[in-house]
Simulated scan of single mutants.
Amino acid sequence: MTRKRRSFSSEFKLEAASLVLDQGYSIAEAGRSLDVGETILRRWVQQLQQEREGTTPASKALTPEQQRIQELEARINRLEREKAILKKATTLLMQDELERTR
């Protein structure tokens, strides 16, 4: 029998990690009370610590500030790709125009 993989919201992860970091619970205590494995809770705690230090995580961010940073970085990447496409299109159009005038 296969066990379904659970998914947790960013808010839940943030609250769970905050129990350990801010309220003094041990990882084992918090894991038991939330019915979450210690390994995953330990990852969330480490991620929250890194985010509070200003490091943007590779996975989905927990804190609203880091989530905003990730959204803005994604937007920048998209705009840079669009800019590169427009540059290539302009180059091709200019080449066609030069060939017609010769």
Rank of each mutant, 00 (worst) to 15 (best):
R52D: 00
N77R: 15
E71K: 14
Q49Y: 04
Q70C: 09
T63D: 01
T90K: 04
A16G: 08
T91S: 11
G31A: 07
Q46A: 15
L92Q: 14
E51Q: 12
I76R: 15
E73S: 13
I40S: 15
M1N: 11
L92T: 12
V36I: 15
Q95N: 11
M1K: 11
T101S: 10
I69P: 01
R100I: 03
G24E: 05
T39Q: 10
L79P: 01
E99D: 11
L62N: 02
D35W: 00
A74Q: 11
Q66G: 00
K87I: 10
D22W: 04
N77E: 14
Q67H: 08
R102M: 04
S9R: 08
Q50N: 14
A84S: 13
I76W: 05
E82K: 09
R81Q: 14
R3H: 09
F12W: 08
L72N: 11
L92F: 10
I69T: 09
A30G: 02
E15K: 15
K13F: 03
A61N: 01
A28H: 02
M1V: 09
R68P: 00
R78A: 13
T39M: 03
A30M: 04
E11T: 13
L14V: 09
R102K: 09
A89T: 04
E99L: 04
E65A: 13
E29I: 00
R68F: 07
N77T: 12
L92M: 12
P64T: 11
Q66I: 08
T56K: 08
T2A: 15
E73Y: 04
G37R: 10
E53F: 07
R52Y: 04
A30F: 05
R5H: 10
E11R: 14
L62K: 01
D35S: 15
A58D: 10
T101R: 13
L14E: 12
Q95C: 01
L93K: 08
E82A: 12
L19G: 14
Q66H: 13
E73A: 14
E53A: 15
T56R: 11
L79Y: 06
Q47Y: 03
Q50G: 06
Q49W: 02
M1L: 11
G54I: 09
V20M: 07
D96P: 00
V36D: 06
L34N: 12
S9E: 08
I40Y: 04
R6W: 06
T90H: 02
R68W: 07
Q66Y: 00
K4C: 01
T90D: 02
E53D: 13
P57E: 05
E71T: 10
R102W: 03
K87T: 10
R32H: 06
I85M: 07
E82I: 06
K88I: 02
